[in-house]
Write a protein that binds this DNA or RNA. Structure first.
Lengths: 101, 101
DNA sequence: CTAAAGCACAAACGATAACTTGTGAAAGGA
DNA sequence: TCCTTTCACAAGTTATCGTTTGTGCTTTAG
């Protein structure tokens, strides 16, 4: 779960879209492909990249496989940002507190 | 300063290294090139990518140009992470508070 | 046991990005 | 003014990424 791998995974807009789709509820590959208007293979590949980066988790459900956001990868991103953000840590903290209310 | 542009900039290990170098003190292109063991042109290009992403800022100093981390880009990353991180916001907040002490 | 649904793996093509080479502009010193 | 330093811009080559196409595996239904 290197930082390089995570940021590469986040760099593609399609994968950002997929992450937003599976943020709150687990979805199957077919459902995601329909939402993204992409082929099953393309979505499957994107999910593999996100999974290798630790950004999504998989769960089998019969024939289907349900994908959901995995907090582990995002924790690494948070650590990375906190390391290189010299003076704005308080601002990020404020942003988070605002969203928590 | 789109999220795509920022993550693409952060995806390259060389650029991550550059960011760590200019996190605390401004450095010239030549100094960075020496530290990174890369050509001046390559470093100049990386700095341009980081500048377009809003991750570094430039300041002229005679013949040289001094680059330094710019918090603006990192704020966007923080917002992005906060948006897709459903349950781990408290954890990031704790991480930041620990680093602030 | 057979057939269909759902998904992953692998090869190949097109597009994008990274690095090199060459060159020119801006600033400071002799 | 002439030369050096410092850096950015542009073109060309190589590598990497995203997508498609084709195929095989696993699970469920009849």
């Amino acid at each position: 779960m290197a930082a390089e791998e995570i940021f590469k995974a986040l760099a593609a807009p399609q994968r950002q879209h997929i992450l937003r789709l599976v943020r709150d509820e687990p979805l199957s590959v077919g459902q995601i492909a329909t939402e993204c208007d992409a082929s099953q293979q393309a979505v499957s590949h994107h999910l593999q990249v996100l999974k290798d980066a630790g950004l999504v988790a998989v769960r089998r459900d019969g024939q289907r496989r349900l994908y959901l956001v995995d907090p582990d990868g995002f924790e690494s991103v948070g650590d990375f940002v906190a390391e290189l953000w010299p003076s704005g840590l308080a601002r990020l903290k404020t942003t988070i507190e605002d969203r928590q209310t």
